[in-house]
Nucleic acid binder design. Structure first.
Lengths: 338, 338
DNA sequence: TATCTTTGCTAAAACGATTTATATTTGATA
DNA sequence: TATCAAATATAAATCGTTTTAGCAAAGATA
């Protein structure tokens, strides 16, 4: 393990002070009136011996880490994985690195992870928060830490956030089903109080109410494995045999729903019309292909990172928070008779 | 932004030395002969004022960060996302955090990221390395950094690694097709020199050679988007109309392949039998369902993290490296006439 | 009683940077 | 020839820990 050299070593080699080296490396040569001659000499030496400042020492001194903490629900969910990917890419371009974690919607784990982020002195936070973490988020904000929520948010907390028009997304989807002649439209969703799930529910109910149609709601717990979800959906479908269409509230509910439908031998769209949430190759390739509510992932990531970088760079403590609500796109395919 | 208190502040409050506090907090009270009485008092105060050590300062002093750097090819690929998820979970349980990045198989980006990891003084590295990064990996190892490669490895570099039996996996898959009566079996794969891709190719060729069958190889570049991949596969299939079965070398080649097959109006398995790499809900739900080569993701993650944690904890510089080669599971479905 | 151990605790150096305050030289001004 | 300002560079404090080396008091030993 070759000993990494420090700024002091480097200074000694050149017979100058570490202060001078530091100024030059931090682009303060002009400001601090270091002669061009010396500055050049130092830079040349830095290059030559391959000196790299110790990032930890820098962070300790400056309080900045150039690290962003990203907390998502579950990295193995394609929606989150894709967002993470794009955020990582964009952050990287601006010189920021990402530490990420999956919360599993587990409050204790989330608190732990937040503590860890704060221990590690991340410069900013991007979070898809589970229910029950309001207090921690609030104290983060009160501490002056830059925070951007996404996917869901807390209406009572003044934060920046980026979400989609959840209510509109399901409203439009149900409208589409109604226009296509379906009358018994089920909504299979999570039993979650998170804002995005509540809003999706609202959109569903609003559309049904406007047409005086019956509600068929199935709420499923987040905290279980796929097999169980399939079992729940299967039993729901067996009981409610009048249902002629299903809207799914999340991507994996849609996928598990298709498995349930398969196993029951039901035909799409003859027996059941389907609309899924989040687009996915699976929905495109399924026979018949499945209509889906597509979230603008690229745009979401862009907004998230832009807002956060803005907060990071504006030394002025701008208090005004930004809320971005993006529209979704209903990709109409063959899973309902148009 | 309330000022976080330091170990010095805490010591002052109790009128003792920071040294003492540090010893107690690091479980060295007995060893350093601190009286139980005092130790207890300190712990109580720590609890009371909610003192948390500054992790950066700790790391600067100790050289340990409790952070593992995870470099995967692409987090939006479900295979890698799932591995990342499991590794994260297991690392977390052992008190380690993960910094992760996607390499995109881009050498420059990978070098950059490795530098970043090293700047940040990660304690260990888990890497699915792109071609061309051999030198950097080697110097990492020579520096004494714990490194575990996975998915692919460099035969000429003595590292710990965890991979699957790539040659065996494709060999078995092709054997299965041959037994089912297929004679013109194509392999659509990457034009990559990475070990895993080379081995998959070997397995394919070995099986064909044993039966004296013709090779039909299509190698596709990694560096392009899905649309292009589909175009390449489509044109390949149009040219080679004698092909009666296809083995795909990666999961996304399989998915894009299905799209190409769809657009050509070919029927599975009447026109073409299919075997995909990596299992996926899509393959299960496809009509007909698609046979696939399933990687033991759970076991891989377990091995990877176990090996790394071992290296991290064994102060003794054990030189012996471990290579783990896990078997895959051919999940036979309806995509070929059995 | 003189010396040696043990007990209980701490001062200060170290990790490797940044930043504040200051020193020295040179040149210009009055 | 003083005096002041500008130009150039640096010493030392600082961030918040851990760790080495050592001190003082009390008890044990001879």
């Amino acid at each position: 393990m070759k000993k990494k050299l420090s700024i002091v070593d480097l200074a000694k080699q050149l017979n100058i002070s570490p202060t001078t080296v530091s100024f030059i490396l931090n682009g303060k040569a002009k400001e601090k009136r270091i002669s061009d001659e010396l500055a050049e000499k130092v830079l040349k030496q830095v290059e030559e011996v391959g000196y790299k400042p110790n990032a930890l020492a820098q962070s300790l001194r400056t309080g900045k880490t150039k690290i962003i903490g990203l907390m998502i629900e579950d990295i193995s969910n394609p929606f989150f994985a894709n967002i993470a990917r794009l955020i990582e890419e964009k952050a990287y371009k601006s010189g920021y690195k990402i530490i990420y974690c999956s919360t599993d919607n587990n409050i204790e784990k989330t608190k732990d992870l937040l503590q860890m982020f704060s221990d590690r002195k991340v410069d900013g936070y991007i979070i898809s928060p589970p229910e029950g973490i309001e207090e921690e988020i609030l104290s983060l904000i009160n501490n002056g830490s830059p925070v951007v929520l996404f996917d869901r948010y807390f209406p009572e907390i003044p934060t920046d956030y980026v979400v989609i028009d959840n209510e509109g997304s399901t409203y439009n989807a149900v409208q589409h089903l109604i226009k296509s002649g379906y009358k018994n439209i089920a909504f299979i969703t999570l039993d979650s109080l998170q804002s995005q799930m509540q809003d999706r529910l609202k959109g569903y109910e609003k559309a049904l109410n406007e047409h005086g149609l019956n509600h068929h709601l199935k709420e499923i717990s987040f905290y279980q494995n796929d097999e169980n979800i399939i079992r729940h959906i299967t039993s729901f479908l067996e009981r409610k045999n009048r249902i002629d269409a299903i809207l799914f509230g999340t991507n994996y509910l849609g996928i598990n729903g298709l498995k349930a439908i398969n196993s029951l031998g039901l035909k799409i769209p003859e027996d059941l019309a389907i609309i899924a949430f989040d687009d996915h190759s699976l929905f495109e390739l399924h026979s018949p292909s499945i209509t889906s509510i597509d979230q603008p992932i690229e745009e979401m990531s862009e907004k998230i990172i832009t807002i956060l970088l803005n907060k990071l760079n504006s030394s002025s403590k701008v208090k005004k928070t930004q809320s971005v609500i993006l529209p979704t796109n209903l990709i109409i395919r063959n899973s309902s008779k148009a």
